[in-house]
Amino acid sequence: MEIKLSLPLNDEVIEKLHAGDNVLLTGYIYTGRDAAHKRLCELLINGEDLPFDIQNETIYYVGPAPAKPNYVIGPAGPTTSYRMDAYTLPLLKKGLKGMIGKGLRSKEVIEGMKLYKAVYFGAIGGAAALISKSIKSKEIICYEDLGTEAVQKLYVEDFPAIVVIDSYGKSLYDR
């Protein structure tokens, strides 16, 4: 059974999510991976505003492939999340509520998710062509010079994911 979730998230919804839940996400998400995270954190360190309001938002760790003509976007599967761990706490503190990626997270990130009430979704690594079918629009928000690593705002419909780490710190990877 899949749980249909509308984005942006809020605390009430997040509290009901548990590791292992299959979800279908509908709404806006932001893309961001290594280089964009580095820039976002540098802004926060310097006390500057982020280029978009991150409150209650969800970031998808992805660097899409280029779109063929008549495609909204190219294949767009998740990248490995641990590389964003070093930049995640300041974003959670700013109100980031959802992250979509694949793979393990650090203890610090998990503690931060408990403290600030956030959820980590897993998408299937390498199912990029399939996942791209649930992305309905894209718009570059900032860092266009980074190419595939630019921050984009995507509208997704029934984006398939699974709750990997919930706001209680429970992880689907723990066995």
């Binding site: 390498g126 199912a127 990029a128 062509a129 079918k133």
Partner: peptide
């Protein structure tokens, strides 16, 4: 889903992974 993904990639001639 991985199998479906790889079939889409082949049929549409797009990369199987970004």
């Amino acid at each position: 889903q991985i199998i479906k993904n790889d079939e889409i990639a082949f049929n549409e001639q797009i990369p199987m992974c970004q």
